[in-house]
Simulated scan of single mutants.
Amino acid sequence: MTQNIKTASLPGASDTYRIHPDAKKYTLRDNGFTETKSGKFQLVRILGTMVSDPHAPKLKITISKDLSDLKFSTTTENGLQPVNIYKNDKFSEYRESVEAVFYGLLEGKVLERVN
């Protein structure tokens, strides 16, 4: 029986990820995810390097409650519009922040790089 492995990547990014096979609900909580009312797990990080940056986009990672589905998005600071941080060099600082978040999640065995 083959398992349908769901993957996710940010628009324009070269790396694709999936949920680490050893990840459990407590692994997600230990790595900063919060559980929503619907049971999903969500991690939201502001990507600015300075706290006072009011226009820094947000990275949102959502994992389904059964740990089978993974979604990534980057949005404006208010969360209403998608932002492609890989579109041009003006977002390079934000890309570095995303890579740092993903590195921590790889180390914490929450995510696994597919490619």
Rank of each mutant, 00 (worst) to 15 (best):
L10S: 10
P57E: 05
K65S: 12
G39M: 01
Y86D: 01
F102V: 05
G104C: 05
D89P: 01
D15H: 06
K25G: 01
T16E: 15
T36W: 04
G104H: 08
T76R: 03
M1R: 06
I5E: 09
M50T: 12
G48M: 14
T49K: 14
D15S: 12
G79A: 11
A56V: 05
D69F: 08
K87L: 12
S68A: 06
L47R: 10
V51E: 15
H55K: 13
T27C: 11
Y103G: 04
H20Y: 04
T62A: 09
E107G: 01
G12P: 08
M1L: 11
F72Q: 09
S73R: 14
K109P: 04
I85F: 07
E107M: 12
A23I: 02
G39H: 09
L80P: 00
E112H: 02
D69Y: 11
E107P: 00
G32M: 11
T75Y: 03
K109Y: 04
F91C: 00
K24Q: 13
T76C: 09
D22A: 11
L111F: 07
A8G: 07
V44F: 02
S97Q: 13
K71F: 06
Q42R: 15
R18F: 01
H20F: 02
M50I: 01
S14V: 14
L111S: 09
P54Y: 01
S73A: 13
T34C: 07
G48K: 13
I19T: 10
L80E: 12
K109T: 02
E99H: 11
N31W: 03
Q3S: 12
T62I: 08
N78V: 05
L111Y: 06
V44S: 12
S68V: 00
N4V: 10
D30W: 02
P57C: 05
I5Q: 10
N84A: 04
S9Q: 15
I63H: 03
K65V: 03
F102D: 02
T36R: 11
K58D: 09
K40A: 15
H55Q: 12
E96I: 03
D22V: 00
I5N: 09
N31S: 14
Y17P: 03
S38W: 01
E93F: 11
S97K: 14
F33G: 03
V110I: 14
L10A: 05
P57Y: 06
F72N: 08
L70M: 13
K24H: 03
K6V: 11
T74F: 07
Y17M: 06
K58E: 07
K87V: 04
P21K: 13
L10T: 05
K109I: 01
V44E: 15
I46N: 14
K6T: 07
K65R: 13
N78W: 00
K60T: 14
Q42T: 12
T34L: 15
G12L: 04
V114K: 11
S52W: 09
A56P: 05
R45S: 10
K60P: 00
K60M: 10
E35N: 02
G104V: 00
T75Q: 08
S97W: 04
T75D: 08
K37H: 04
M1K: 10
G108E: 08
L10N: 07
G48S: 11
F102R: 00
T7K: 12
G79H: 06
Y26W: 09
L43Y: 02
S14M: 06
T76Y: 04
L70H: 08
T49N: 15
A23S: 13
E77M: 00
R95D: 01
N84T: 09
G32L: 08
